[in-house]
């Protein structure tokens, strides 16, 4: 059974470390963390970030020392807001890249407000069938 993990920023056991958020020690002030879905299948890990309203140019993806970070610039949405439930400011979210993902082959695309980042798995980690001789 999975270890319950509901304390944000808490260091997690190794078996759940893939894509757990990295503790936000270095996180820039005044940023928020957009919600994220992570899928894991045989070929790749897929990260989906909900970033509605952000232009492609406003988003920056970096890989540094096993950490993937996604940053977005402030949308500068101004106006006479009478109700504000979602944020339009700068955001940042970091992920630990699992060992079986190939950080050299990361691809990203943005569609309908969802940023999809694809991390293919290294060949050795993919399932293969072995022929009986």
């Amino acid at each position: 059974m999975t270890v319950l993990n509901f304390q944000p920023g808490f260091r997690v056991p190794a078996n759940r470390s893939a894509f757990q958020p990295v503790p936000d020690v270095k996180r820039v002030q005044n940023t928020y963390r957009p919600p994220v879905n992570v899928l894991n299948d045989e070929e790749a890990y897929t990260i989906q970030l909900a970033v509605p309203g952000y232009d492609r140019d406003a988003i920056q993806i970096e890989v540094d020392n096993g950490t993937l970070s996604v940053k977005g610039a402030d949308r500068k949405a101004t106006g006479n807001y009478t109700r504000k439930e979602f944020k339009t400011g700068a955001f940042e979210r970091r992920f630990q890249i699992p060992d079986d993902a190939d950080s050299g082959l990361i691809e990203a695309k943005q569609e309908n407000g969802v940023l999809t980042i694809l991390l293919p798995k290294v060949e050795a980690a993919k399932p293969r069938s072995i022929q009986v001789a």
Partner: peptide, 26 residues
């Protein structure tokens, strides 16, 4: 928490505007 989209609302001189953040749809 996230199955219902968040909404921002503005009032301008000639209109109200509702912005609904619902990414990933068509």
């Amino acid at each position: 928490r996230f199955s219902e989209p968040a909404m921002n609302m503005l009032e301008e001189a000639d209109e109200f505007r509702i912005e609904l953040a619902a990414p990933g749809l068509d």
